[in-house]
């Protein structure tokens, strides 16, 4: 069965939007970048061969869009302001939302991208490595460093008690 751009959009646009929102901290910019991804998907769909996982293909495009965006702006991504962060999260996550977005904004770009690709999309190390042009060990190191740094930045806020009832991961 042939995959259409509308099918891919239906299945993945929310995940891509959330990834961009986490990376940039700006919902409007995340919408623009998500739209850019699907514009490219429509153009590239004729050459797309569904050999691998379509999520990996889409996030490869998303990563290219993100890199192009950073090249155009030539500045690090901004973090969410407090009202946006508080409005964005669900009630359970609002307690940590502002601190988490702040902490993510302080991570080096390479570590933040690898961390969010892994945590938001659930891609494996090998898939993230292919997207980021690095090795699986490189992905493991970046993830490990990102987690260690986030733990330092969010000291005291990452306890289960502070978060309340946590969904099953």
């Amino acid at each position: 069965m042939e995959t259409t751009a509308a099918d891919l959009f239906e299945r993945h646009h929310v995940a891509i939007f959330r990834f961009f929102r986490r990376v940039t901290g700006d919902p409007d910019l995340a919408e623009d970048l998500t739209q850019d991804v699907f514009v490219r998907v429509v153009k590239a769909l004729a050459a797309y061969q569904p050999r691998g996982w379509e999520t990996a293909w889409l996030f490869q495009i998303a990563r290219t869009v993100l890199v192009d965006h950073h090249r155009r702006r030539r500045e690090p991504s901004a973090s969410l302001s407090a009202p946006e962060a508080l409005a964005a999260g669900s009630p359970a996550g609002q307690l940590v939302a502002f601190g988490l977005q702040e902490a993510l904004g302080r991570l080096p770009e390479a570590e933040r991208t690898v961390f969010l690709l892994r945590e938001v999309t659930g891609l494996s190390y090998s898939e993230v490595a292919a997207l980021c042009d690095t090795s699986e060990d490189g992905v493991g190191s970046r993830l490990f460093r990102a987690r260690r740094r986030l733990r330092q930045l969010l000291s005291g806020r990452l306890s289960v008690d502070a978060l309340g009832p946590v969904r099953r991961v």
Partner: peptide, 22 residues
Amino acid sequence: LTEWAALRAAVREDDSRPSDRF
């Protein structure tokens, strides 16, 4: 492990969606 699980939950606990304009 507990803190990482909490971090993962916080990252994934995101029910935001694009706007109607999008």
